[in-house]
């Protein structure tokens, strides 16, 4: 008969709604993220909409370094999202602080405040790389839901 759980899981993978938070970024990554929505790259094909509201979103795209002021906002936004959710850290700044890792106001990469599922390196990463990052995040959601096995070989662990 109708397997609602299966259909819901299909819906989750085909309709990841994104909220973008610029967390101390120089704007390079942000404009590449916005470029994903526009004609040449067009992520709406995959069902991705940029909803501005964390309460409606499944995937949080964070760009930029975390500093002492915006870490509170970042945690707030992460907490407002409903499960299942994924976090993608975009750009070298989001991974580890990038060029600014030893500035006095910088705490570090996004994973110092919230758990990150996917890291997209680049300064800034191309829109294609960001789209790839979202696709990998969907794979991570699949693993979290128990629909797929975690890969045997882990990606490079960044300290």
């Amino acid at each position: 008969m109708i397997n609602l759980k299966e259909w819901i899981n299909k819906g989750r993978l085909k309709s990841p709604w994104v909220v973008h938070f610029d967390c101390g970024s120089c704007n390079g990554c942000d404009i590449e993220i916005l470029a994903c929505l526009t004609p040449v790259h067009d992520v709406e094909r995959f069902g991705i909409i940029n909803v501005g509201n964390p309460k409606h979103a499944d995937v949080l795209l964070v760009s930029g370094t975390v500093n002492h002021r915006n870490k509170i906002a970042l945690k707030n936004i992460y907490d407002q999202m409903a499960e299942p959710k994924a976090v993608i850290a975009i750009g070298a700044c989001g991974l580890s602080g990038g060029v600014f890792h030893d500035c006095y106001n910088v705490v570090g990469g996004v994973n110092k405040v919230i758990p990150v599922d996917v890291y997209v390196p680049g300064c800034p990463p191309r829109p294609e790389a960001i789209i790839d990052g979202v696709v990998v995040a969907l794979e991570q959601i699949k693993i979290k839901l128990g629909l797929a096995e975690a890969p045997a070989v882990h990606a490079v662990h960044m300290e």
Binding site: D22, C23, G24, S25, C26, G28, G64, T65, N67, R69, N70, A73, G98, V99, F100, D102, C103, Y104, N105, V106, C123
Partner: peptide, 24 residues
């Protein structure tokens, strides 16, 4: 919310490296 303090990096990078910091 975006203050990183990159002017403070000037003393810790040489003048060629600062080009890349300033670009960002």
């Amino acid at each position: 919310y975006i203050h990183r303090g990159l002017e403070g990096l000037a003393t810790r990078r040489d003048f060629n490296q600062m080009v890349y910091v300033v670009e960002r």
